[in-house]
Amino acid sequence: MANPLALATLPPGLVWQADRLAGSAAPGLPTGFAALDAQLPGGGWPRGALIELLAARPGVGELSLLLPLLRSTPADHWLAWIAPPRLPYAPALAAAGVPLERLLLVRTASDAETLWATRQATASGACTAVLAWPGRVDNAGLRRLQLAAEDSATPLFLFRPADAARQPSVAALRLQLSARAGRLLVHILKRRGPAPGAPVELVLPQRPGLRTESKLSPPSLHVLARPAPARPALAGLHPRHS
C-alpha cells in the first residue's frame, strides 16, 4: 500500500485519487444545468464520447435535457437524429431555439442500418451532436461507436431502455433518467470518477403552449416529439451493400 505521507509530497495533480472526479483533457460541453455539470468530469457533456441515456419509457424529459446543447448548433454543423421512435415536433423544437434547418432526420429499416447510420454521422465530424435510438446493440457495436465519437470529437447520445443498465458498456457516461412530479431525476451509473450517492434532481423549463397529449409522456413535461406516421424514409445516409 502506498504511503499517504509520501503521496502528499508529490506535485499537485500528479496522482489521481479514486474518490475524486477524474480530470478531463478538454472542458466538457455545458449541459445547461449547473447541478449536473458539477457532477460530470470536465464540467459538462464529455467531448468525443459515447453517452448513454437510459429510461424505462420515452418522454420522461430526455430531449429537454439536451436542449441547451442542441440550440447551440452553429450554422455549419448538423444535428443528426437517427431512428427516433417518434417524429420530432418542429414547433416545440423551434420555440426552444433549436435550428430546424440544421436538423438531419434519418429513418432506418433495421438495427443494422441504425448502427451504420449512427457511426457514419458520428465519424463525419459534421455534427454538433448525434442522437440515436438503436435497437439491439452488442459490446462490439458500442465499441465501434465509441471509437467514432473519439476520432471525430463528436458527442454521441444513445437512448436505450432501462434494462440496458445490466449490460456492460464502453460508454464514457451512463445516465439513468426518470420523471417525478415534473422534475427529471438523473442517476449517474457510470462516469470517470466515483459514483455519487444520490440522483441529481433537475427542474426542466416549462414552455406554455408546447404540450401535447400522449400516453408515452407525463403531462407535466412538454413534448418535443410525436408518433411518427408511416411515410417514405427521409434518410440522407444509405448503407453500402457489399
Rank of each mutant, 00 (worst) to 15 (best):
L69T: 09
L221R: 13
P68N: 09
Q167V: 08
A94T: 07
Q39G: 12
V137C: 11
L100G: 01
W45F: 08
A165L: 10
R231W: 15
V170G: 07
P46Q: 04
L50P: 01
I188L: 13
P196F: 11
A22G: 15
S220K: 12
A165Y: 02
L177A: 10
A149W: 04
S178R: 15
A230C: 10
R86Q: 05
G141Y: 10
A233I: 11
V200R: 11
A22M: 14
T73W: 08
L69Y: 00
E150D: 09
I82W: 00
I51V: 15
D163C: 03
L103E: 07
P239E: 14
V130G: 02
A55D: 06
A171G: 08
L131D: 01
L204D: 13
D111L: 00
P91L: 00
D138C: 05
V15C: 12
V223I: 14
P218I: 04
G44V: 13
S152R: 11
G23S: 15
E52R: 07
R119V: 05
P30V: 11
P218W: 05
A117Y: 03
A80H: 04
A129N: 05
E113K: 06
A121R: 02
S24N: 08
A96V: 02
P41W: 01
G125E: 05
G209T: 14
A195Q: 14
T73I: 04
L173K: 09
L234S: 15
A8K: 13
L79R: 05
H187L: 07
L54G: 02
L105N: 03
A25Q: 12
P12D: 11
K190V: 06
D163N: 11
A181E: 15
G32H: 12
R107K: 04
S178H: 06
V186C: 13
K190L: 03
V170A: 10
L131E: 01
V200H: 06
A2V: 11
H238T: 15
E150T: 07
A165M: 04
L40R: 11
V106K: 03
V137I: 14
S169C: 07
L21N: 13
L177S: 08
L7V: 12
A233R: 15
V186N: 06
T154D: 07
H241P: 04
A92T: 00
Q167R: 12
P99Q: 08
V137Y: 02
L145V: 05
L63Y: 06
L115A: 06
R57D: 12
V130S: 01
A112R: 11
V98L: 01
L29V: 14
A140N: 05
A92F: 00
Q17L: 15
A95M: 02
P155E: 02
A129V: 03
